[in-house]
Nucleic acid binder design. Sequence first.
DNA 1: GGGACGTTTCGGCAGACGCCGAACCGTGCC
DNA 2: GGCACGGTTCGGCGTCTGCCGAAACGTCCC
Lengths: 249, 249
Amino acid sequence: MGLVSRDRDFTAVGRALATPARSVFLNLLLDGTRRPAGELARAAGVRASTASEHLSVLVDAGLVTCEAHGRHRYYALAGPHVATALEALGTLAAPAPVVGYRLSRHAQHLARARFCYDHLAGHLGIALADAWVGRGWLAGREVLVLTDSGADGLQATGFDVDDAVAARRPTTRACLDWTERRPHLAGALGAAVGRRFLEAGWVVRHRSGRGLDLTEAGTAMLREAWGVTLAEPASDDAPATPARVASRA
Amino acid sequence: MGLVSRDRDFTAVGRALATPARSVFLNLLLDGTRRPAGELARAAGVRASTASEHLSVLVDAGLVTCEAHGRHRYYALAGPHVATALEALGTLAAPAPVVGYRLSRHAQHLARARFCYDHLAGHLGIALADAWVGRGWLAGREVLVLTDSGADGLQATGFDVDDAVAARRPTTRACLDWTERRPHLAGALGAAVGRRFLEAGWVVRHRSGRGLDLTEAGTAMLREAWGVTLAEPASDDAPATPARVASRA
DNA sequence: GGGACGTTTCGGCAGACGCCGAACCGTGCC
DNA sequence: GGCACGGTTCGGCGTCTGCCGAAACGTCCC
């Protein structure tokens, strides 16, 4: 101890991020999914061989892990710390160039609800954070610290708060969305919430895409439990207030 | 709004970090100082011409700003957001390779007290955070949220809390040291504290180096105000408890 | 076993990039 | 004005690396 240099060598991480294909890969994996090499290759517009080389660079840099499954190899982010760091870097990075694509519809969907590695994000994530700050369950405005009443309330609603508190990761963490400017809940508790939403069937992963669909059950649950209503996806733009919260302390 | 891609292009930032020389530059600037091109060149072990090219890359990437002063050009980090992002990336990056140097002495000095862009870090920063958490001035263990009593207490001690709260930046932010594993106070309030420590002469920048020296006045002030004592720099290693806090609630 | 398929490895090519020395520019000083 | 000095620009050199197609490997399925 004390013998290690205090400075960090950004070279390796930098190299890993420094090419368009790898940047695309990371963006795709940033929602916490595992994806086979071929799918990543197609998404980035490069040959399988090229993608393979890129992926091994990411693995060597420790950003991504590889898990063999049958004749597929699934790649995923190496852990929450990678997601956290990339998310912080996103502050500096420019929005990715918009490829032709039917982006608009896609983007709207993502804006509404998605996973940010292991926790809920998009309008849904923000609405939850707002609601819980409103009831005094989370404190610190931009920082989202769990209060005692919050621990009780969330536990009562069926979230595994004890586990989250005991975890090695920070219990709560505020994750600032790049496009919206409001924080949503990350950290061990954020992950627990996300897990529960999936297990309970309140949200389901959109088939063949990133992004989540809020189910009937989920919609009802949000309204009844916390008076949260998300703007309908069918409606046009709803930029100013993406979600409305009834109970505001 | 809504039209921008949700993904980020990490390519540019990645490229900017991807070379040893630029990594050294950023590490040097990470303490918030501005330094002339020549000094940076010497530190990185490259010719002035090479350094100049590197620096223009960093400027183009928006990580660094350049300010002409006489026949010198001073380079500095482009803002707190850059420091924050790099600090987050440090989680992923390996410790920088140790160059020959008389590193040990140097590193010890840095470990004791230094600036982390605009706020106090090192054992000093950690000791302050510990002390203030102990008195209930900061809440949230790993997160460091300012409490009401904390606002009163710090204001009474002469820190400009009102300004910090009014600032556009988050009032408090926990900055996790890479080598130590404990957080210290960053954000607008952290910057206000750092500023005051310099102005009051409690710390002075170490000549020709990074790192801070705690003055007699600073030592006395720490002890009297919060019962904080930093281990003497003359002593050998003091790894386990870098600082001791008297009053623990 | 044979064939389809997902993936990796290999060789090769072209472009990008880091480095340097030399030349150039602007400022400060005598 | 003349010179020293900090800094940038330019041309050139060698290396690295991103890309591809072809070939090899392993798995699944008939």
